[in-house]
């Protein structure tokens, strides 16, 4: 691996760990929630509930998975 590739890899790893942390499920839940908010908003429907519902589901999923290990 070249020095540039190593640097890029460690840079990516730092930001991944800084932002995502232990479990990517939560970030995926947040992203899905925000996408649903945008879709509902574009359709002129109430959208405020979508984000909390999606991240709560992601949190439940993540906790359940952690409890099995």
């Amino acid at each position: 691996m070249t020095a540039v590739a190593k640097l890029a890899r460690s840079f990516f790893a730092f930001w991944w760990d800084f932002i995502i942390g232990d479990d990517v499920t939560l970030a995926v839940g947040v992203a899905a929630g925000l996408a649903l908010v945008a879709v509902l908003h574009a359709a002129a429907l109430p959208a405020w509930w979508a984000l909390p519902v999606l991240w709560i589901l992601a949190l439940i999923w993540s906790l359940n998975r952690a409890s099995r290990h």
Binding site: V30, G33, L34, V37, A38, L40, H41, A42, P46, A47, W48, A50, L51, P52, W55
Partner: peptide, 11 residues
Amino acid sequence: TFWAAEGAGAD
């Protein structure tokens, strides 16, 4: 939750 949903268009 508040800011992100608001930023995505929610009221």
